[in-house]
């Protein structure tokens, strides 16, 4: 066992991190900029889409998810799935309640 006494170290270079950081800055500017336009119901979709791209970049590069094994991926994604479940079913339940005609 002692032969493999170090894990893979991901020496992602300064250049990659700087590019990622810059991309995040740009996306922040974009999200502020597009918020000025009205896409109706899609406002929230656009905003969440940009936020998710940013979040994905942070997770993949800053947090090295890109280099992690399948197990980590499962446990990174499963909570998101449950979050969708929680939000989805709660919203579904709330807005399908039968209005009592009075």
């Amino acid at each position: 066992m002692s032969a493999h006494n170090h894990t893979e170290e991901h020496h992602t270079g300064l250049r990659v991190y700087a590019a990622v950081c810059l991309a995040l800055f740009v996306l922040t500017a974009v999200t502020v900029y597009v918020a000025k336009f009205d896409f109706g119901d899609f406002n929230i979709v656009v905003a969440m889409l940009i936020a998710s791209i940013k979040a994905a970049i942070v997770a993949l590069y800053f947090m090295h998810l890109k280099f992690e094994d399948k197990l980590t991926w499962i446990y990174a994604l499963y909570p998101l799935f449950l979050l969708f479940l929680l939000i989805g079913f709660t919203i579904m339940e709330t807005f399908t309640r039968v209005p009592v005609i009075k």
Partner: peptide, 18 residues
């Protein structure tokens, strides 16, 4: 078990579909 919680609320006024 994460998908069944609404069964505690059948008489709480949730919709028929739910």
């Amino acid at each position: 078990s994460f998908f069944v919680w609404l069964h505690h609320m059948f008489v709480s006024g949730i919709s028929e579909t739910a």
